[in-house]
Design a protein around this nucleic acid. Structure first.
Length: 463
RNA sequence: GGCGGCAUAGCCAAGUAGCAAGGCGGCGGUCUGCAAAAUCGCUAUUCGCCGGUGCAAAUCCGGCUGCCGCCUCCA
């Protein structure tokens, strides 16, 4: 399979380091609030990646971090700690806040049918490893201490900026952030902070440089190396991580290890609302609870995400979500029909293999889900395939889509509805249309739709 | 200032050199007591604009316009 590697800006054939399993590390959430649907799009992309790898018989070990130590609002030691902010807002300790949102986060992933990582690393549980890591960087002269703060020296790492493609000397120092006078070079970034401008920081740990807290890029690097060793196959995150977070991670890790670290870097594009990236601070806070209130299921969102390529911005609106919802519900209906048929009809063997091959090509082409999804509708429309073969293909594809096609099932009709339908049949026989319409209305209110056919009334769930 | 992305029908969105996928919506037919559902058909002679290179361009090159992102925390 081919994947687009941010490092080379090209599609490359994927080759894992080891035959045993693929080492996949994905950046998780900072658990100070609910995950919004933009966050979820990235986790969806990583899920599609993992499912595709597994579909092609790779064994995958998936590690995700949870950031539960305070990230300040900026890398310049300005702004307030998000977790502390959340805690104050809710009258809880930072730890309570972190645990609460972490729990909801993983519940949201389940609702979206996103596979759980095999290993979940909490940053707060790796503080000692981070300290040891920083010590090595200081020994190797890649880092220096000033007044209790430790910084990484990007001048010592000539390849700095390889991922982002941004020339170091062209970065506008202090363009948007205040210059930290402790830094030798404005582009240096913090590994450990003891002398923060926020002395009341609640979450603090002892370190050789003073009581404080780790910098903002060290956690993923340390936990990844801790979990996977000196090499990593794939590291994922949102596009926002390219320029700073992942760039800094590469610098730290390769300085520490003394060699290349991760082979493939993959990044998911934004979900945009009204031509703007999703943000936790602007407009309506769109998360799973908000869309549920408006009548949409997590699977409707998953379907929407499937309709666009992961490296393309996706335009979110309730109009586009409604389109996805309708398409998903139509798909469910069609699959239910297929499941009900079960007639042995001749099937076009070649046709089936042909469609199967197209699916392989699509997902192997840098996870082209829109093309793969179009095949679903082609299958449903096709007249040369038996229902058995159609279901067979759809369920096979769903190992990657994760729409739950094999679980689609028809809920039974409650007895009172059965009686109503029988009654309606009776009054219809007598052409009492008024009464028949009244009963149909009753059934509608119970969520049951009716279609009158030549061989009697059929019912279906209205949703 | 530096780096990068995007512009395809009413909406979402594939395609990146050889007659413009798919979904949603809309319109029309069939069916129906009426409906609904289902089903069939239709729904971009054209891909922001202007040039260029090709037998051939939405796809490559140049220019222009518009929108967006990153260089602070962020998926």
């Amino acid at each position: 399979m081919n994947v687009f590697n941010t490092l080379t800006r090209k599609q490359e054939s994927f080759k894992p380091i080891s035959d045993d399993y693929v080492k996949l590390y994905t950046c998780g959430l900072t658990v100070y609030n609910y995950a919004h649907i933009g966050n979820l799009r990235t986790y969806f992309f990583e899920d599609i990646l993992r499912r595709t790898l597994e579909y092609f018989d790779y064994r995958v070990r998936h590690v995700m971090n949870v950031t539960d130590v305070g990230h300040l609002e900026s890398d310049a030691d300005t702004g307030e700690d998000k977790l502390v902010l959340g805690a104050r807002r809710e009258g809880k300790t930072p730890e309570e806040v972190a645990r609460f949102y972490e729990k909801i986060f993983f519940e949201d992933l389940v609702a979206m049918n996103i596979l759980q990582p095999h290993i979940i690393c909490r940053a707060s549980e790796y503080i000692n490893d981070m300290i040891e890591f920083i010590k090595v960087l200081i020994e190797k002269k890649y880092a220096y201490e000033v007044e209790g703060n430790v910084y990484f020296s990007i001048e010592r790492f000539p390849e700095y900026g390889r991922l982002s493609g941004m020339p170091v000397d062209k970065l506008v120092a202090g363009a948007r952030i205040e210059i930290d006078s402790n830094k030798r070079y404005p582009g240096d970034f913090a590994l450990w902070l003891s002398k923060s401008k926020f002395p009341n920081q609640i979450m603090q740990w002892e370190s050789p440089w003073g009581r404080g807290f780790p910098g903002w890029h060290i956690e993923c690097t340390v936990m990844s190396i801790k979990c996977f060793g000196e090499h990593l196959d794939i590291h994922c995150g949102g596009v926002d991580h390219i320029a700073v977070h992942h760039t800094n991670e590469i610098a730290q890790a390769e300085a520490y290890l003394g060699h290349r670290w991760c082979n493939y870097w993959m990044h998911g594009e934004w979900l945009v609302v009204a031509k703007e990236k999703m943000s936790k601070s602007k407009g309506e806070f769109l998360d799973l609870r908000a869309i549920a209130k408006n009548g949409y299921m997590p699977m409707h969102l998953r379907y929407l995400y499937l309709t666009a390529h992961y490296r393309q911005q996706l335009e979110f609106s309730y109009e586009s979500l409604t389109a996805a919802k309708n398409a998903f519900e139509n798909l469910r209906t069609r699959v239910l029909e297929l499941k009900a048929i079960n007639e042995p009809v001749d099937s076009d063997r070649m046709l089936k293999e042909n469609i199967q091959a197209k699916f392989w090509d699509a997902i192997a082409d840098d996870l082209n889900m829109p093309v793969a999804l179009a095949l679903v509708w082609q299958i449903l429309k096709d007249t040369g395939l038996s229902s058995v073969d159609k279901l067979d293909l759809l369920e096979d594809f769903d190992r990657v889509f994760g729409l739950g096609i094999s679980q689609f099932s028809r809920r039974d009709l409650p007895d009172d509805c059965k009686i109503l339908i029988r009654e309606r049949e009776n009054v219809r026989q007598r052409k009492n249309w008024k009464e028949a319409d009244r009963i149909r209305q009753l059934l509608t209110e119970k969520g049951v739709g009716i279609k009158d056919t030549a061989h009697g009334a059929e019912w279906y769930w209205l949703m």
